[in-house]
């Protein structure tokens, strides 16, 4: 017997999903989760007034990066069209593309699937996925399931976790 980590129901050996709550109960995922690639320190980021830091040199193949304000770590996003941002928990069915679990996301009130970030030709569009604690852009709460365009330097707050959006500038 295997027990589901989420709802404790008992499933027979060989089961892949919990028949009660639908959670995947075996560890198998081939969705590649993006973890921070390195630590750089863009200077002069304050909590409320977004500054415009220069794009970090490591950008190369990325168009958009997220700078975690508490730790000043930068997560580079590969040039895919759409990402989910959230935190993973054990036994979770769908792991977010960008996993903030290593950054105390749980304590900060980040939902498992908090927002969706869509990249469109040097533009980033954010959509709150009905998260429990909401999403703010530069301190202003955005409504769930609606798209909002982000600018370079905008501060995105997921629950209490603050991220600054860094967008590579076009042909400079």
């Amino acid at each position: 017997m295997i027990s589901c980590k989420k709802c404790n129901s008992q499933e027979l050996d060989g089961a892949i999903f919990c028949s009660q709550c639908g959670t995947q109960i075996i560890n198998a995922t081939d969705t590649t989760t993006i973890h921070p690639t390195g630590v750089i320190k863009p200077s002069g980021i304050s909590d409320t007034t977004p500054q415009f830091p220069p794009p970090p040199p490591e950008f190369e193949n990325s168009t958009v990066a997220l700078c975690l304000i508490p730790t000043e770590e930068v997560i580079f996003l590969p040039n895919e069209k759409s990402f989910t941002i959230g935190r993973s928990t054990e036994g979770q069915l769908v792991v977010p593309d960008v996993d903030l679990a290593p950054f105390n996301a749980y304590e900060a009130g980040v939902s498992r699937l908090h927002t969706n970030l869509k990249l469109q030709e040097h533009r980033a569009v954010v959509k709150d996925l009905g998260s429990a604690n909401g999403t703010r852009i530069n301190g202003k709460r955005i409504s769930a399931h609606a798209e909002h365009v982000l600018a370079h330097g905008d501060i995105l707050t997921l629950g209490k976790l603050k991220l600054q959006i860094l967008i590579k500038r076009t042909a400079e």
Binding site: M1, E11, L12, D13, G14, A15, I16
Partner: peptide, 8 residues
Amino acid sequence: TPEPQIIY
């Protein structure tokens, strides 16, 4: 195993 098991 002493219990039934599932295979797909």
